[in-house]
Computed example of a mutant assay.
Amino acid sequence: MAGLYQGGVWRVRVELPDAYPYKSPSIGFVNKIYHPNVDEMSGSVCLDVINQTWSPMFDLVNVFEVFLPQLLLYPNPSDPLNGEAAALMMRDRPAYEEKVKEYCQKYAKPEDIGASPEDKLSDEELSEDEYDSSDEQVVGKPDP
């Protein structure tokens, strides 16, 4: 994906509605991305933006090869889910581009994709402890 987001790697969540392919899938970024049409907290992509581009002839390959690259290349600040990003993009393009790159470096490094999408330290340590204890119980049970 060219442009500002080049080099970033995101996990994407795709949910298909019952009426798919007549209704567009709902798409969300799992790790954070700074983009006018993506909700920063939930990662959801603005459905209006998808619906403008969506056609029943599309399949999921098109989502990844056509739709998402276009979304990243051509943000639509007039229909924002991230108002701050949209305002910054229209008001101060260089500052906006700087922030996009900062998010790419912070949240979208290829090596991060193997890790959990939560903020690294606190959450991961908690969940690792939980996993360890439950693993031991399972492993520790002698065969009957």
Rank of each mutant, 00 (worst) to 15 (best):
M1C: 10
M1S: 14
A2H: 13
G3V: 04
Q6T: 12
W10M: 04
R11G: 15
R11K: 11
V12M: 01
V12A: 01
V14Q: 05
P17A: 07
D18I: 12
Y20W: 03
P21E: 04
P21K: 02
Y22T: 08
S24L: 03
I27H: 00
F29G: 00
F29S: 01
V30K: 06
N31Y: 00
N31H: 08
K32M: 05
Y34R: 00
S44Q: 11
S44V: 07
V45E: 00
C46P: 01
L47S: 14
V49A: 09
I50T: 06
N51M: 14
P56V: 06
P56A: 06
P56L: 04
F58K: 05
F58L: 10
V63W: 01
F64K: 04
E65S: 14
E65L: 14
L72Q: 02
L73W: 09
P75W: 03
N76K: 08
P77S: 06
P77E: 04
P77T: 04
D79P: 00
P80C: 06
G83V: 12
L88A: 01
L88M: 10
L88E: 09
M89Y: 12
R91N: 15
D92I: 03
R93G: 05
K99W: 02
K101A: 09
K101P: 00
K101R: 12
K106A: 11
K106G: 05
Y107F: 08
K109G: 09
P110N: 08
P110D: 07
I113N: 02
A115P: 00
K120Q: 13
L121F: 10
E125A: 13
E128F: 13
E130Q: 09
E130C: 08
D132H: 14
D132T: 10
S133W: 11
S134E: 07
S134G: 07
D135S: 10
D135H: 12
E136S: 13
E136A: 12
V138F: 11
V139G: 05
G140H: 05
G140D: 13
K141E: 13
K141N: 14
P142C: 08
